[in-house]
Amino acid sequence: MSRDWPLWEVFVRSRRGLSHVHVGSLHAADAAMALQNARDLYTRRQEGVSLWVVPAASITASSPDEKDAFFDPAGDKIYRHPTFYDIPEGVEHL
């Protein structure tokens, strides 16, 4: 057995209408304990109305080594932004 409990990532919904945002991580033996620890560690001042805990080992992340190749396809597609287009003066609601 590892010398420490597994690592969990913690996400907090700060109030209704907002999505859960990653706030940090913690160690806990299981999911129930991770939730309780997350409450004690990250919401001591009513910072949230809902919590997610996710085993850190379950997260798949993009690799920094292929950062450029991975995100490059979006680089030359500036026509996806509305500011790309020339609009004649005086046209409204567009």
Binding site: E9, H22, G24, L26, A57, P64
Partner: peptide
């Protein structure tokens, strides 16, 4: 914490 990026 704060974004481990999940690779040791």
């Amino acid at each position: 914490m704060y974004g481990n990026d999940f690779t040791a």
